Simulated scan of single mutants.
Amino acid sequence: MLAVVLAGTGLRAIGVLDDRRTGRLNALAYYVALPALIFTATYDQSVGDLLSPALLAGLLVVLFATAALAWLVHRDRWSRARRSVAVVQSYHSNLGYLGLPLVAATFDGEVTAIASVILGIVSLVQVPLTIVVLVGINDADAQVREELRQIATNPVLASLVAGLAVGEIGVAVPSTVAAGLDGLGALALPLALLCVGASLELDLPSVDAGATLSVVALKIAAMPALAWIVFSTLGVDPAALTAGVVMFGTPTAVSTFVYTTEIGGDEGFASLNVFVTTVASIGSLFVLIHLIG
């Protein structure tokens, strides 16, 4: 993971991955590889087998509890612009670009299928929550309706719905089609890592070690630890426990920098946190997967 992320950063530095080419890679990962991975993970599964009431409750508890903890930790600290970013980046996980591809590359099909459902459910909650937090703290005049409309047309959610629908109806997917989609899905992790590496920027003048460390501690340490406690307490099955803990152990999503740019917040601080949590999570995820595996 670290090698591919650094390769993406290096290719951007020498001009190979400029904005146009990085945009094309992002589109390939987001609109082709990731939806293919999600569909192949869920098209032969039943919704009831993947999503239990305990798992659903646990996902919501972990997400909102981490957001509330971030609010308490960061309240009345720094400027509004920096505080809003610190809160958002303490809970907003990189579930699509890193979480699901990493789970698919590491665990079996059952865990991957559950991780796909987790991606869909948590995305439906964390994206609107992030928009509300940024708008509320910054008193931003943003087009919230347009941002929320984009959620409804999200290809990740569309592929999840399609895969679960095929699984519930019992439609047979031809083996050649399944094999082709499986091959495309295998590209999700390397493409995502390259794009993340090409998108990372370190703005040294904006470095605030204390603020960034608090975000890192909440995102890649407190959140997966809380997930492990909550899912264990609720008694979810081992596959769901594994998928949930690893997905919540992912770094801050790159999209939080995009939302900060569009809606309001400290852009330099947002970019720094994405960079640091991504690099730090490579080590933390190795430990987490070893423990949970």
Rank of each mutant, 00 (worst) to 15 (best):
V161H: 00
P155Q: 15
E168P: 15
E146H: 10
A178Y: 03
L157S: 15
G170I: 14
L129P: 07
G167T: 05
A186V: 01
V127S: 10
R145C: 05
I169N: 05
I121G: 06
I151H: 04
V144Y: 06
L184E: 05
L160S: 01
G180V: 11
I121P: 09
N138F: 00
R149Q: 12
L181D: 03
L119R: 00
S159I: 13
P155A: 15
N138T: 12
V156H: 02
A165P: 13
A162D: 03
L164M: 11
T130P: 14
G185F: 14
D139E: 11
L134F: 07
P174H: 07
I151V: 15
G163C: 14
Q150C: 01
E146V: 12
L129Q: 04
L129K: 03
L181G: 10
G170K: 09
S123H: 11
L119G: 02
V135E: 04
L148K: 08
I121R: 03
E147Y: 08
N138L: 00
G120V: 04
G167W: 01
V173G: 03
V171F: 07
T176C: 12
V144R: 13
E147H: 13
L148I: 12
L164G: 13
L129F: 01
L134N: 04
D139Q: 13
R145F: 13
P174L: 05
S175Y: 06
A178Q: 04
L124T: 13
I169Q: 03
T153H: 10
L119M: 05
G185L: 02
I121L: 10
Q150E: 05
V125C: 06
S159A: 15
S175W: 00
Q126H: 15
G163R: 08
P174Y: 14
G185K: 04
Q143T: 10
T153V: 14
V127Q: 11
A178H: 03
L164E: 08
Q150V: 06
E168S: 13
L134E: 00
V133R: 00
G120Y: 12
G180K: 07
V133Q: 00
V156S: 05
L148N: 05
L148C: 13
A172M: 08
V133N: 00
V122G: 03
E146C: 05
S175I: 07
P128D: 09
L134Y: 02
Q143W: 04
I137F: 02
A140V: 06
P128M: 04
L119N: 00
I137E: 06
E168C: 11
P128K: 03
G163S: 15
L134P: 04
V132M: 08
D139V: 03
P155E: 09
L184A: 13
G185Y: 01
P174S: 07
I137K: 01
L124C: 15
V125W: 07
G163K: 09
A172H: 09
V132T: 02
I121S: 01
G180L: 11
P155W: 10
T153Y: 10
L184M: 11
V177N: 04
L119P: 02
I151F: 05
A158N: 02
I118M: 07
L164D: 08
N154F: 06
Q126G: 09
T176F: 15
N138P: 08
I169G: 03
A172T: 12
I169V: 14
D139R: 15
V125T: 08
V161A: 14
